[in-house]
Amino acid sequence: MNNLQHLFSMHMVLSTLRLAIPLTLASIGSVICERSGIINLGIEGMMLSGAFGAVFGTHISGSPWIGMLVAILVGGLFGLIHALLCIRYRTNQAVSGVGINIFASGITIVLCQVVWNKEGLSGEVTAIPNVTVPGLSQIPVLGKLFEKQSPYFFITLVIVAVSWYVMYRTKVGLRLRTIGDNSKAAATAGVNVTRYRYVSVIVCGMLCGLAGSFLSIVQSNLFVKDMVAGRGYIALAATIFGGWNPFGSFLASLLFAFSQALRINIELDIPEQFLQMLPYLLTMVVLIIAGRKVKGPQESGDIRD
C-alpha cells in the first residue's frame, strides 16, 4: 500500500472535512461561551443531547430537518440550564458542566429505553441526505467538495464565517470580547453583561446540539449511547488551540480531524493511541508555551461582579 499517496488523496481531504464538522461547530459554540466569561465543560453532554434530540425529532416527525431543529432546541435548553446555574445561581462552572455531562449520558439512555425499548440504542430513522451542487461539482478537483456533500458542510462554513465576522467586525462582537476580558469595563460602558452571557451560553448549547445531530442523523441514522465519545473535549481543546477565535477553531478542528482521518484511513507505524492523544498533547503544549500570556478571555471561568 502506498501510504504517501493516500495521505494527500482527495479521500483524506473529504474525510478530514467531514470529521471536522462536529468539532468546528461545538468549538465555535465554546469560543462564544468562553468569550462571555463562562467555561462550558458540558459540551460533551450538550452534543449528546443534541444527537438524541435529532433522532427523536426525526422519529416523531419523519423529517430529519425537523430532527435537526429539535437538536438545536435541546442543545439550547441545556445551554439555558448551564447559563441559569452559572450566571444566576453562581454555581461553579466546572461542576455544572460535569453534572450536565453525567445527566445527559444517563437521560439519553433512559429515554432510548422509553421510546424504543432498547438498551442504549435508538431505532433507525431517515438521515439527512447528501447533496450535489449543480455546476460547482463540475469544477475539476475542487468539484469533489460539492459532490455528494453533506449540507452540514455548507452550514458549518457559513457559521464559521458569520461567527468570525460578528466577533471581530461588529459592535456586538467587540462587546462580547470586552466582557470576557473585563466585564466591569463592559458594564461601565453600559453593556448588559448578563444578557450577553445568557445569549452566549444558549447559542453555545444550540451549536453543540447541531454538532451532535451531525453524528446521529448525518454520519449515521440512529442514536447510540455515549456516541459523542469525547468529541466534546476535543472541541474544547480546539477552542484553546485555536486561540478563542472562530476561525482558529475551524483550523484547529481541521488539524485534529486530520489526525482522526489518519487513524481511520491509513496504516501508519505510529500507534493509534498517539494519534488519539495528539489534540490534547498539542493543546497542552500551547497552554504551557503561551502560559501567562495566553490570549484567552481573561475572566473566563471566573465571573465576578
Binding site: 440550564i81 446555574l85 445561581y89 454555581t91 461553579n92 461542576v95 455544572s96 460535569v98 453534572g99 450536565i100 455531562n101 453525567i102 445527566f103 445527559a104 449520558s105 444517563g106 437521560i107 439512555i109 433512559v110 432510548c112 429505553q113 438498551e119 442504549g120 449511547k225
Partner: peptide, 18 residues
C-alpha cells in the same frame, strides 16, 4: 434502565452545587 442512576447522579451534582 441502569442509567437512571446516572440521571440521579447528574441531578444531585447540579442541585448540590447550586
Amino acid at each position: 434502565s441502569t442509567s437512571m442512576i446516572k440521571v440521579m447522579q447528574g441531578l444531585v451534582i447540579l442541585f448540590v452545587a447550586t
